[in-house]
């Protein structure tokens, strides 16, 4: 589940502690943009100690490491792999070259840490025009890749256009990224909404992202967790239908029928996959009474 992927600045101890209780699906400890050049070593050590010591519960732990073109990248990946990160977010990904670099460092890091090959996955942050055009190449470059994420701020700069709230400037990039990611069976995570004080704007932005096929959103402010979860919360009717689909398929299988229909429509594999995805979202949203964790604002009720 990657509805909400919250960035935490890597060199601020109090913010790292907040990660233990904030209701996000994914925590992204940032060693890149949030950390000044002369504090890269300190942030790497601080995040690693935090990962080794603090209990972040069910949340997926991701570390955004530094650009593969910098000397920090290798040290970052080795240290945070050893400290127990679930995934590494690779910034400024441009095609297979970036992915293969990151993957080969991860090979080394996993061996050093005594982890089995492939334990740590890659999330590719794509934030340049060339990166967007090579999204499919990057997505299919390594079996480690588990998700694509869009970085709209840098992309707008690269495109030479203004980043706006309406975000028409990102239309092509979003569509392209969803297509490339889904073509490879990956999660696709939308760019963050940048106005921390505009929760309703964030909700609308996240609804739009979901309508395009994204299954999550990067989040730069805890105030956006609630609107993002609300946006990814399925309707009661969607959930009811999804449960019916799964039940019909189960019965069909039991009765050994090849083709299953529900409400006069054939159910095929894509429909079942979609239904399962809806049920997962419903569970995460606290709609099915399965308590994955304490309900957070935006989950359940409403």
């Amino acid at each position: 589940m990657r509805r909400s992927c919250l960035f935490l600045p890597g060199n601020q101890p109090s913010m790292l502690q907040n990660g233990m209780v904030l209701a996000c699906d994914v925590l992204i400890f940032d060693l890149e943009d949030a950390v000044s050049e002369n504090e890269k070593d300190a942030a790497r050590e601080l995040v690693s100690q935090a990962l080794l010591t603090l209990d972040f519960g069910m949340r997926e732990i991701v570390v955004r490491v530094n650009d593969m073109e910098t000397p920090h990248a290798r040290l970052d990946i080795i240290r945070v792999t050893e400290a127990g990160a679930d995934a590494v977010m690779v910034p400024k990904t441009v095609g297979a070259t970036t992915v293969l670099k990151a993957a080969s460092i991860l090979d080394e890091a996993e061996e050093k840490a005594g982890l089995s090959h492939g334990s740590v996955s890659l999330i590719l942050l794509i934030e340049t025009a060339m990166g967007i055009e090579k999204a499919l190449e990057a997505a299919s470059a390594s079996s480690r890749v588990s998700a694509l994420a869009l970085g709209g701020e840098d992309l707008a700069a690269d495109l030479g256009c203004r980043r706006t709230k309406a975000s028409h400037e990102l239309y092509y990039a979003r569509a392209k990224l969803v297509m490339a990611g889904r073509a490879c069976g990956l999660d696709v995570i939308d760019t963050p909404f940048t106005d921390a004080r505009d929760a309703e704007g964030c909700y609308k932005d996240a609804c739009y992202a979901r309508s395009l096929g994204f299954n999550g959103k990067l989040v730069i402010s805890p105030h956006h967790l609630e609107p993002v979860h609300r946006a990814f919360r399925p309707d009661e009717s969607e959930v009811a239908y999804a449960l019916e689909v799964v039940e019909a398929m189960r019965r069909g299988k039991e009765e050994g029928r090849g083709a299953v229909s529900l409400r006069g429509k054939m159910i095929d594999l894509p429909v079942l996959t979609q239904a399962k995805r809806t049920i997962e979202l419903a569970e995460a949203s606290g709609m099915l009474g399965t308590k994955r964790r304490a309900p957070a604002k935006g989950d359940g009720e409403e």
């Binding site: 907040n18 904030l22 105030h223 957070a296 604002k297």
Partner: peptide, 15 residues
């Protein structure tokens, strides 16, 4: 407060 921890405590309290 804008502090996310304060808001979390407030949310739990209201619930």
């Amino acid at each position: 407060t804008r502090d996310p921890i304060g808001l979390l405590i407030a949310d739990y309290t209201a619930r």
